[in-house]
């Protein structure tokens, strides 16, 4: 880690309850009073039993799930921006510039080539440079050149996830959220991802991740945050 610690992501009193109107308004509280802080260059692993709400928390941090209460501050343009309260337009801007997210599964856009999917996420450089970087990243993740021009719809689960990872990492976001990044990968590719995460940390990227694989977690996480399942049902 270089320089003094800088908080890149911080939550306070974060609550999340799902209300299922189609099940007679059944309320399922998942997150209560989450207080989490992540520094630049640090990787925090969300831990806890299955169904506890780790994925929910990660999605809430991205603004994909709506927080019912509390704050989610992200250091964007050197100001702490509360994306839980910000208008959608601001969240779009924060996601474009600062906050990246690698989902567990690639949401396939039909008929767009893998290379283009990744190159589009490059943010900033001219198209030629973006494509060059995308190609390099895909090759590093063992997606052979012959697949670059193909849409990922027919790829294997592992290949799709690697395209997804390439798309997530190429943007160079200062804060990165990773949901089970190595879930469908074999050991060799898993190690590549570990290396990529480590490199990101040396570039002062703040990372929050869910890692089911303890090897990966031990290799990249600086500390853990335990998400405990809430016992009450309403």
């Amino acid at each position: 880690m270089n320089g003094p610690a800088r908080t890149m992501l911080r939550t306070l009193s974060l609550d999340k309850t799902f209300t299922l109107h189609l099940r007679n308004g059944l309320r399922i509280p998942v997150l209560r009073n989450v207080a989490l802080a992540v520094q630049a260059g640090e990787c925090v692993a969300l831990t806890g039993p299955s169904g506890a709400g780790k994925s929910t928390l990660l999605r809430a941090l991205y603004g994909n799930y709506r927080a019912d209460a509390g704050h989610i501050w992200v250091r964007h343009d050197d100001r702490m921006t509360d994306i839980a309260a910000a208008p959608p337009r601001t969240v779009v801007q924060v996601r474009a510039a600062t906050l990246g997210y690698v989902s567990q599964f690639l949401r396939v856009v039909p008929r767009v080539a893998a290379l283009d999917i990744v190159a589009e996420a490059a943010r900033g450089p001219d198209p030629a440079t973006a494509r060059a970087r995308a190609e390099a990243l895909l090759l590093r993740l063992n997606i052979p050149r012959r697949l670059h021009a193909l849409p990922p719809a027919t790829f294997s689960g592992g290949e799709q996830q690697r395209v997804n990872l390439a798309r997530g990492f190429i943007g160079g976001h200062p804060v990165l959220l990773l949901d089970e990044p190595t879930a469908s990968l074999d050991a060799a590719n898993r190690d590549i991802v570990i290396a990529m995460i480590r490199e990101a940390k040396t570039r002062s990227v703040a990372i929050v991740g869910i890692f089911h694989d303890t090897t990966v977690r031990d290799a990249v996480a600086d500390r853990s945050y335990e998400v405990t399942p809430l016992q009450e049902a309403a």
Binding site: T19, Y65, R66
Partner: peptide
């Protein structure tokens, strides 16, 4: 609201 938020975490019935 935000497209992915409304579609992934819909609030209204």
């Amino acid at each position: 609201g935000l497209t992915d938020q409304v579609l992934d975490d819909p609030q209204h019935e």
